[in-house]
C-alpha cells in the first residue's frame, strides 16, 4: 500500500527545485511577479470543500462531515446491510474506480478531499455551498498533501487504468503548496491581473484546480466560513418568500429549512456566511 503523505513529504525538495528553476528562468520582472504570486498563495489560500446545504445543517447539529466510506458505515449501521454492498449499490459502474484508488493508499478510506481556494466559490457546479476550512484546522493536520489536479484524473490518465506513477511524481506537502501552484501556473501569472489570481487556483469551469487530500474530522469548529453565490442566496430567499403564497413541496421545505438554519446560525455567531457576487 502507498503512503500518500510520506510520498508527498519526500517530494518537498524537488518541489522547491522546480520552483527555483522556473523562477530563475524568467526575465527579472516576471520572476518578481512570480515570487509575489507565490507569497500571495502562501498567505491567502485556504482549503475549501463544496458541500450540500443539508451537510451544513448536519454540521450545525453536531454531526461531522463524512466521506463516502464513513457514510456507508453509517448506512450499514442503520440498515444492517454490509458496507461494501451499500457502496456497490450507490456507485454501481463507478465502484471499481473509486475503490481501486481508495484501497491503493494506506488510510485511503479515511481521505477527505478539498481544493485550494483564495476567496472564490470553489468547485461549485454540483454543490454551490463552499465550506472554507479555518487556517488553524489546516495547519494542525499531520496528514495532508497537495496535488496539481484531481487525484483520480491523475491516477487514471493512462488508458483509464490505475497508475500511481504520475501522482507519486506530482504530490507535495501542503507546506509547499505555494511553490507547487507557482510552478504549475508559471506561464500565466504575469499575464493575469492580480485581482484574477484566484482563477489560477480554480478555473471558472472548475476543471483546473489543486486538490488537497487530508485525514481529519471536520466539524463546525473546523470551518472558517461558508461562501454562497449571490444568485443562490437570492434564490433561497425567494423560495422562503413563496412559502407565504403556497404550500412548498417536501424538497422545497427541506431546502428552506436548512437555509434558515444556516442563516440563524450565522446570526447567532456560530458560523460566518459570505455571499459572493
Amino acid at each position: 500500500m502507498l503512503d500518500l503523505f510520506a510520498i508527498a513529504a519526500k517530494n518537498a525538495d524537488s518541489i522547491d527545485n522546480v520552483f527555483n528553476d522556473a523562477v530563475t528562468s524568467l526575465p527579472v520582472d516576471e520572476a518578481k511577479t512570480a515570487t509575489e504570486f507565490a507569497q500571495w498563495v502562501d498567505e491567502n489560500t485556504l482549503i475549501s470543500i463544496n458541500i450540500r446545504l443539508f451537510v451544513i445543517a448536519e454540521l450545525l447539529c453536531g454531526i461531522p462531515y463524512r466521506n463516502i466510506h464513513e457514510w456507508a458505515e453509517e448506512q450499514a449501521d442503520l440498515s444492517g446491510k454490509a458496507k461494501d454492498l451499500i457502496l456497490r449499490e450507490r456507485l454501481k459502474g463507478f465502484y471499481e474506480k473509486r475503490m481501486t484508488f481508495d484501497r491503493a493508499f494506506q488510510y485511503g478510506e479515511r481521505f477527505k478531499y478539498g481544493a485550494l481556494n483564495a476567496g472564490g466559490l470553489g468547485l461549485s457546479v454540483y454543490a454551490p455551498y463552499c465550506a472554507v476550512l479555518s487556517p488553524d484546522f489546516s495547519n494542525a493536520l499531520d496528514q495532508i498533501a497537495c496535488l496539481p489536479g484531481d487525484s483520480l484524473d491523475i491516477c487514471f490518465a493512462r488508458a483509464g487504468k490505475f497508475d500511481h506513477i504520475d501522482l507519486e511524481k506530482s504530490v507535495g506537502p501542503y507546506s509547499h503548496r505555494h511553490w507547487m501552484v507557482t510552478s504549475q501556473r508559471i506561464g500565466k501569472i504575469d499575464s493575469t491581473p492580480k485581482h484574477g489570481w484566484q482563477q489560477l487556483l480554480i478555473s471558472p469551469d472548475s476543471k483546473c484546480y489543486f486538490e488537497i487530500i487530508f485525514i481529519g474530522d471536520i466539524t463546525l469548529k473546523s470551518l472558517h466560513c461558508v461562501r454562497i453565490p449571490a444568485a443562490e442566496y437570492q434564490a433561497m430567499w425567494e423560495l422562503a418568500f413563496a412559502n407565504y403564497g403556497r404550500k412548498l413541496s417536501e424538497a422545497e421545505r427541506a431546502w428552506v429549512q436548512d437555509f434558515i438554519q444556516l442563516i440563524r446560525a450565522s446570526k447567532d455567531g456560530k458560523i460566518q456566511v459570505e455571499v459572493i457576487t
Partner: peptide, 11 residues
Amino acid sequence: QDAVINHDFHV
C-alpha cells in the same frame, strides 16, 4: 462519473 465519484451522487 464526476458527480458520483466526487460529489456524493447515487447512481
